[in-house]
């Protein structure tokens, strides 16, 4: 050991050690650059969800229904949103529009905001206050709920807003805390089914008998689960009343 070069921090580096250290420097910088590239380019595709600012602000009229998450069944649409469509609504950030929608339950209302879209799923982020949601003139047609029976489904509970494109990626366990925070803020929860059920991949998921998603289900958010519950068609939306006692994590 004795004849090997001895490095002292505040003295010039001994000659034979210089080449070694120079190669270490090159390997270090090159290695970090390569690691940055490889780790960066191997990220997964976050999927097709996004805010559609390119569509511009959308304003339509329809019947408000608390499922208990607020849904609107369109009666007077526009170029993009047709009468007969049904969609969920949220406010800006991680909050829902429950307090604004509740007084208008079963009534005709005009909603205005930006669309979030992921495949068949879309949702509207309403403008603030009465600009986003206000009562409209006219008689509201009655919305008939059509029970579709009890189903066992496999898939993942997500928060509807992040899933629809507010966050990319907006699902999965790394995103679970964010999803829970959205659900706690009254953003509607969505169940992503492993395969289409009654033609739909995405279902609004609630507790039994018109209650909110039970807190017991929050532990399973973002995990892949199997569970049972009644499906009801409301407008063109499917609502799944999940029975939390039947939730099982898939292998």
């Amino acid at each position: 050991m004795s004849d090997k070069p001895f490095f002292v921090g505040y003295l010039p580096v001994p000659g034979p050690l210089r080449i070694f250290l120079l190669s270490v420097c090159v390997v270090l910088i090159g290695g970090l650059a390569a690691a940055g590239y490889i780790m960066g380019v191997t990220q997964d595709d976050p999927g097709p969800g996004a805010f559609r600012f390119d569509y511009g602000r959308q304003t339509v009229t329809g019947v408000v229904e608390m499922t208990p998450y607020p849904v609107i069944h369109v009666t007077k649409g526009n170029d993009r949103i047709k009468p007969g469509d049904s969609f969920m609504m949220t406010a800006g950030g991680k909050s829902g529009v429950d307090s604004r929608a509740m007084p208008l339950n079963g009534q005709l209302a005009e909603v205005s905001g930006i669309i979030l879209e992921r495949g068949d799923l879309y949702m509207m982020q309403l403008r603030g206050g009465r600009n986003g949601l206000k009562a409209a003139e006219g008689d509201a047609p009655e919305i008939v709920a059509e029970p579709q029976g009890r189903w066992q489904l496999t898939g993942e509970i997500c928060d509807g807003k992040c899933l629809a494109g507010a966050m990319r990626p907006g699902r999965g366990l790394a995103h679970k805390a964010c999803a829970n925070l959205c659900l706690l803020g009254d953003v509607p929860p969505i169940f992503v089914s492993s395969q289409p059920v009654l033609g739909e991949e995405f279902l609004l998921v609630t507790g039994p008998d018109g209650t909110r998603l039970p807190r017991a289900a929050y532990d399973y958010v973002a995990q892949f689960i199997t569970a049972e519950g009644e499906i009801t068609r409301r407008g063109d939306l499917l609502v799944w009343e999940i029975d939390t006692d039947t939730i099982k994590v898939t292998p």
Binding site: I29, G36, G40, Q43
Partner: peptide, 15 residues
């Protein structure tokens, strides 16, 4: 230099 290379490539090249 190493850290800057990592971050710059990850932040600006890989997207």
């Amino acid at each position: 230099a190493g850290v800057a290379a990592f971050l710059w490539i990850f932040l600006y090249i890989t997207p």
